[in-house]
Design a protein around this nucleic acid. Structure first.
Lengths: 290, 290
DNA sequence: ATAGTTATCTGACTTAGGTCAGATAAAATT
DNA sequence: AATTTTATCTGACCTAAGTCAGATAACTAT
């Protein structure tokens, strides 16, 4: 009915007319938009004046005046960068912090007002997660972390939940060979999480063993990021790390109830091998030499 | 990991930084934003000056000046409303049409540039459809139309496609009792389509018969609109029309492979009855007295 | 050391955008 | 018929936002 471009433009119309109102939350505190935007950029951690200027696309003269105005209001303190005395850095004063929080509160309120219109917002929020992840794809960051960190645990919970839904008899972690966190920390292994502006989108674990190979575990990609090549990026990164750790053989297991995973390994340079463990869940086994 | 408000704000950040650029397409033709917005509003069919003013939220003085500017450029012609000589209506001149098309082309180009970054945009576009539909829910319109109109046929194709995916042995319209289009047109029946800014979101047909009852057929709701009460709205409307047509008994059939449909009828005042036709697909039958 | 580059500041200037008070004419209400 | 309301227009005015040219000081490269 509608072609892709029309669908895209329909989306942008809906969003600018409904969500665009969120920008308005920068008003309502008796300060012009420009000054409010600078204050908020600083509040969100952009201390470097040049960075704020680039982010907001402001002329240097204008920026200078806006900073002066905020200084006069005693909301920020501008100091010279110790490493490069040409550069300046701006930080919020206590009063600036309060003002920034007030803006945050306004924005939260607007978001809440819009959300409250939807009796069951979960479907909507899931679609929003996907759109935000896709649009911000260039800003995805792969981070190495402890598998017990909150982002990692969130991914693992989602992963277990999905297995439980997709396996015929469900999935119970305690019956599976749940890897020791310490086996997925350097130097024995590692754990990667992909983050997109605060939302974890996927993870993968490298579990060191004493059997002459390491195992790939817990490869998961959020529904909000599927079809965008994240699994491939995670695997490439974790293989690089494995090489760094002088690991020359990788193994993994998976299940035929996850056909997209099986296909992913088959087309990703992995060779099918015989069962190499006694975990009750997997029925497909692969290895790859590095 | 993130609460609903944070997810919503993450979405709005992503969208304003990526899609916000679409607004910029209103620039680039050497005209100030205000004038460009008015020209585009008129081009999109808002001929009533008051309507444009309300839509863009402009002061009457400012509006007046912007109209004068566009008139001076010979892009629009402002005439007095024949029904109410206080009101004025603006229409594009031939030159204005060309200029409007140039803006449309710019917007299409921007949309295309953003879309082209996604190798398989279908998932993204589906999520965008859903978000746009949800955000624009207040502007949904239920329209009565001929079941052979493009929007109706689009809905029916989607409906058949979904049945084909969800029924065990697939679905073939030609084996089903496909209702005659003329049975779903007044005065025998009717056909309703729900539109949301150009995208059909759902449909329902009322098929007149000569057997003392009418049938509800082809109730479908797009994945982009599920869980938002559209089926209920469509049914309420079609029941009103049935009453208008002096129909006092409705019947319908459905299939246990569509549990949400069965539940919808069970909780919507319908009573299960015995099979009343020999269509090979349905295995659930309902009726409702008006 | 010199020349060029970079980050910021300052002052002068322009424009878009928006507000306000009143004017005008048509329509609606009493 | 008189009054009120509505839709638009006009002129005066203001401010935010942005542009530009040059100044200053610090850093970088030759």
């Amino acid at each position: 009915m509608l072609d892709d471009i029309s669908r895209f433009r329909r989306f942008s119309r809906a969003v600018t007319s409904e969500v665009g109102a969120l920008d308005t939350s920068f008003l309502g505190r008796g300060r012009p938009l420009g000054a409010a935007r600078v204050l908020n950029a600083i509040g969100h951690g952009r201390t470097d004046v040049a960075a704020v200027r680039a982010y907001l696309g402001l002329d240097s003269g204008l920026m200078s005046r806006l900073l002066r105005g905020l200084e006069d209001e005693k909301l920020i303190k501008v100091t010279t960068d110790p490493d490069d005395a040409r550069k300046r850095r701006a930080t919020l004063t206590a009063r600036g912090q309060k003002e920034f929080q007030a803006y945050e509160h306004l924005s939260d309120g607007r978001a809440q007002d819009l959300l409250v219109k939807y009796p069951h917002p979960e479907t909507l929020l899931e679609a929003m997660d996907l759109v935000a992840s896709a649009l911000g794809r260039e800003k995805w960051i792969l981070e190495e972390c402890d598998p017990r960190d909150p982002a990692a645990r969130y991914c693992l919970e989602e992963y277990y939940g999905e297995l439980n839904r997709r396996f015929d008899g469900g999935f119970d972690v305690s019956l599976s060979c749940d890897p020791d966190a310490t086996d997925m920390i350097r130097p024995r292994g590692c754990f990667l999480v992909a983050m997109s502006d605060g939302l974890p989108l996927g993870c993968v674990g490298l579990k060191g063993t004493d059997k002459g190979y390491a195992e790939i575990k817990r490869l998961w990609v959020s529904p909000a990021a599927r079809g965008m090549g994240l699994a491939r990026r995670l695997m490439a990164e974790v293989e690089d790390i494995a090489r760094d750790l002088n690991i020359d053989l990788l193994r993994l297991d998976t299940n035929s109830a996850l056909p997209e995973a099986v296909r992913f390994y088959q087309t990703g340079g992995w060779t099918e091998i015989d069962r190499f463990n006694d975990d009750p869940y997997p029925d497909f086994f692969f290895e790859k030499a590095l």
